[in-house]
Design a protein around this nucleic acid. Structure first.
Lengths: 205, 205
DNA sequence: ACTTAAACCGACTGGCCGGTCGGTAGCGTT
DNA sequence: AACGCTACCGACCGGCCAGTCGGTTTAAGT
């Protein structure tokens, strides 16, 4: 078990650095040696722990990406409060980390999906699974909102989820170069506008 | 001039095929030879007409991308009719071509921006210019809509433009794998919802 | 028929990158 | 002290790719 710890620690270090570099420079434009140089490790170490570059990336998805998407985009919307408020705060926080140029997982997904689309079916399946998880959880949050009387009963939960995911993914691309902070602010304002159009109309009777 | 025509024709063929392949496989994953093979041309022909792969791509942006973004995303919203209707129809058409897996230029921009972000500043500038043009035209269409009494005077035109671009770019990523046609339909329904929240409220008096 | 230049050919180079493999350092076990 | 195993080293291989260059084809001009 002690030995296993050593093994795990090295693999973890490689994966964390790998994700960081793949995110910044893209999968195909990051060589295995790039990652190894960062860690002062050798090719031998890499291929001792992983079968191939693709296997390495697959494990990164399963060990790091999935969990971080959970903690950043899914757990925050799981409560029983007003779903629209939960989602608003969740997006606000996620975009705030994006403003600071940190790893942001809606955008990471967008990047990787674009890079692997039509090129690596296996990895695409993994990435789509994560999107699916996000989507399912958004849908159920919205349905909960309808049940709790915060959201208009007539809205299409899947449609709203799709629209939310779309706008989030898209705004991240638009934030990469031009005044991310201002764009985040504008985006959140419009999101609230949109939410007003689907929340229950409480006429002032 | 006759000679120039030959020259132009060959360069045009290379650029059209180049854009097609860069779009499908990515810039860095498409070799110059890939493009040449498709056209039964040789390396010599390529480097006779273009200085480098990067120069080639820059010319593709300026000669093809810019124009097609104009005809697909900008000209359709330039009229004096109801801005929200114009934009709705424009997005509807653009997403319809996307459903059929054709070149779709909102998505092309997203792809390329992700690929070049942090890697090639020069190309990024060109791509951002196109986004800027799109944005400016959306903003002015919305302002026209406010002036013409179709859109609520209190809305933030830049915010709406950003939100529209975001959602469009994002939904294209989400359409690449899962039931694009159904998602297009859902997306358009939500877009109309959103538009209802920013159009002028005409109480039925 | 001869000249000239534009257009195009394709073998080659140098560098990078994923993956291999024969070795070895360190450490616990006996 | 000898063994054996995990973790790691780094030289090397084969393939790919952007870019080069000496040469050939084509066609217009004279």
């Amino acid at each position: 078990m002690d030995k296993n710890l050593k093994r795990m620690a090295t693999m973890q270090r490689m994966q964390v650095t790998g994700l960081e570099l793949f995110y910044r420079k893209g999968y195909y434009n990051t060589s295995v040696d790039d990652i190894l140089k960062e860690l002062s490790l050798s090719k031998g170490a890499f291929y001792y722990h992983f079968e191939s570059k693709e296997d390495f990336f697959t494990q990164i998805i399963e060990n790091l990406l999935v969990r971080r998407v959970y903690s950043m985009l899914i757990e925050p919307i799981e409560g029983h409060d007003n779903a629209l408020e939960l989602i608003t705060n969740c997006f606000e926080n996620a975009l705030e980390t994006a403003v600071h140029n940190e790893l942001d997982f809606g955008f990471v997904l967008n990047n990787f999906i674009n890079e692997f689309n039509g090129r690596n079916e296996n990895i695409m399946k993994h990435l789509n699974d994560i999107l699916k998880i996000w989507e399912v959880n958004l849908v159920s949050a919205i349905q909960k909102g309808k049940f709790n009387g915060h959201i208009d009963r007539h809205v299409d939960a899947e449609g709203v989820a799709l629209y939310l995911m779309s706008s989030y993914i898209g705004v991240r691309t638009l934030m990469v170069e031009n005044s991310p902070s201002a764009r985040k602010y504008r985006f959140m304002a419009q999101l609230k506008h949109y939410f007003k159009s689907i929340e229950v109309k409480q006429s002032a009777f």
